[in-house]
Design a binder for these strands. Sequence first.
RNA 1: GGGCGAGUGGCGGAAUUGGUAGACGCGUUGGUCUUAGGAACCAAUAGUGCAAGCUGUGAAGGUUCGAGUCCUUUCUCGCCUACCA
Length: 848
Amino acid sequence: MNRYNFKLVEKKWQQKWQNSNIFSSEIDRDREKFYCLEMFPYPSGRIHMGHVRNYTIGDVLSRYKSLVGFNVLHPMGWDAFGMPAENAARENNLDPKDWTNKNISTMKEQLKKLGLSIDWDREISTCSEEYYKHQQLFFLELYEKGLVYRKENYVNWDPVDQTVLANEQVIDGKGWRSGAIVERKKLNQWFLKISQFSEELLSDLDKLEAWPNKVKVMQKNWIGKSFGCEITFQTEGDLPVKEIKCFTTRPDTLFGFSFLAVSVDHEISKYFSENHEFQKFKKECSKTGTTEEAIAIGEKIGFKTNLMAINPLDHTQKVPVFFANFVLMDYGFGAVFGCPAHDQRDFDFAKKYKLDIKTVVKPLEENDEFQVRDEAYTGPGIVINSEFLNNLKVPEESILRSIDILEEKKIGKKKINFRLKDWGVSRQRYWGCPIPMAYDENGKVIPIPKMNLPVKLPENINLNTKGNPLDFIDDWKNIEINGKKYVRETDTLDTFVCSSWYYLRFCSPHDKDYGFKKKDIDYWMPVDQYIGGVEHAILHLLYSRFFMKALGYKNENFKFSEPFKGLFTQGMVCHETYKDENNNWLSPEDVEYDGSKFRKKGDLESKVKVGPSESMSKSKKNVIDPENIIKNYGADAVRLFILSDSPPEKDVQWSEQGMIASYKFLQKLWILHNKIKDKIFNSNDNEKENNNLEKFTNQIINKITNNLENFNYNVIIANIYEVYNFLNKEIESKISGKVLRENYLKILTLFSPAIPHYTSECFEDLGYINPISWPKANTDLLIEDEIDYVVQINGKKRAILKENRNIDEESLLLKLKSNKMTERYLKNRTIKKTIFVKNRLINILVNE
RNA sequence: GGGCGAGUGGCGGAAUUGGUAGACGCGUUGGUCUUAGGAACCAAUAGUGCAAGCUGUGAAGGUUCGAGUCCUUUCUCGCCUACCA
């Protein structure tokens, strides 16, 4: 017998799979389809462990579904536009296209070494003309439908990357990629009208039963629907301002009105452009606006104007109008009415500026003299001190009733407000999909005629420019359409646009006329299982959902509203972090453990500080390169390990020891395989039938099938170990070769989604080709003749008794009275009650 | 501040509808074989006790014949989010 040589075996099967094209998929109306999609990678250069985990999970699922009989679509592509390519190209004097394509081919080879069941014929790359030309067409279609518009807007400007960031790309006031502090800048930008679908995006979440609740909640919060009322306040003062509109969810507290606050960007701020004090205040606000500490401390500051706002319910009440730092321009109307007694922010503000705090809601248990003192009261209760609103129940009655009254008096309107903002898609970068628009000499927008698509990215250009390189390419920028001169739009699309429809492209990857074919998507869509990191819970997933709805808008031929039927978010791969004496990060490859402490490799005197396990990242150097690991241990061993240690939705700790254990396990499994093979071919078929083995096989079929269906992939690996432990013992007993063969083939099939190269080799070694169907448990064999009855006396386990499965309560009780384990608990005692759960347990309650 | 989730051996983690807590792996300990072993194999491994037993799923209560699982209160940790009116 040979050692199991994974190098030869894995290479052999990967080639066979490739040559026989067994993973390529075609429409087959006689079979139910299953579309399994993992989030496609950004071609950064090399795959990382996160990819290994993500794609292994998807591969196990795809292989399983295919064995169960589904027609599986399992494609892969590249999210290939984006800034890293441009940055790398600039630094190394390369073309972003070359850099990207080189990375793609490296990573493709790496992925192939994992033995993934991917239909590579459908490979797509978002930076190819073949892909983005369709995207440009979609953009024009959305433009025609009124879902694309251009407006001047304050944008988040990343001074390092010299580009605009979406709100979602600003984290703690810093650019998500560069980490630079984001500035505010006014620019003309292209927007997609995602807000038009706010309600639908929210309500359709309920349809997504196979999505993690966590993700749905995050999207719900992001969309941020709130129900309330817009109120128009009349103003008095020395400015030409007659009224200010506010949005509120608490119109019932209007009698507690004591100030009105507007954002520093509110339109009335234009009257303060010459006011130095105000400009100083505005600067102050922008400084503290977004930093974490500022929000944590939450200091409220304001700038008092000479304007007074009139309470629309009580014209005698006039309150000051402030600019305030806690009012956001891009929510509601950028103005709020302040009711200090029942809003903590307003309360803090009122305390600071010594404004009235008038209590208008009392908790149920308090009397009418109740006064808000140390903090705002925001709970339920009864309206007081509010004339005709008095005695209404807060919040059930009071809010609706007060809206009605405001509507009657024509001072307010019922309003639903969303937090979700339109999606700014303009990026001032070269390496992206060009926006197919142009401007005439007056700046008027004209879409590029569809027949002139694609708008190709120019090649071999100078990237060493400040801002967008495309701005400097005159012969690309200046065009003629129908004899008229135009200047192209030089912004490119946010790369999230590319990933918002790629799942459709996989259905018709080679179609030249359109992004997808109707007959293809009608068969394959929606994605049955989408798998990826939870970090895309909001951005990518929300944009993709929007894109489906936008394509279907005013289009009866497009019947889908949700792209991803099932979603699974896998956890991250973590590793301990190491630092040397000088607090420099060390790579795990440079660290060794001598049994008691960690040190630098080959340096006995050195000390290494071990830090907490954190998600693998280059900056902390705690990365393990998958390619090396695959080279050393083989793909199946890596797959086995990455699945084994934690539930796939949770973070997993990378462990070298665990990795080695998985590798050794396959070696042991191979030794066992050879024993089994020997027995299959050499033992007499007349040996007594082995009931144990058949029973076990049927049990394990059930277990593994259930665990696969429920994503308990870590438990599947435990099940595989269980099988090994069982067979390794059972093989020593006499077994009929026929029975052994039948059961072993089933077992190998159960293993095959997780360790496909190994099982393929085993099948071949026994003279079989790979299985084509998943085994079914024989339920008859799952019924045990003998049951381990748990015997409890007064609820305490006292014995386990092997008994016939059909034994009744009385016979069992009789046996227990004479059984030496249990008789002493029953002797001389009265049995008050017995609880008998058939085939499981008996609980006898006795007097002590 | 708000939302979501999780607390089980030395560690990662198992545990249909409430019904044998600790599957499986790592680590550790002892042994076998070895010149040696950081290899392989065998055995043990929740705590405590010589044992029968007792105690054990963050803590405290509750429901139940029976609770890791259900309910109430509470503590700790993680993740997300953030002045959203």
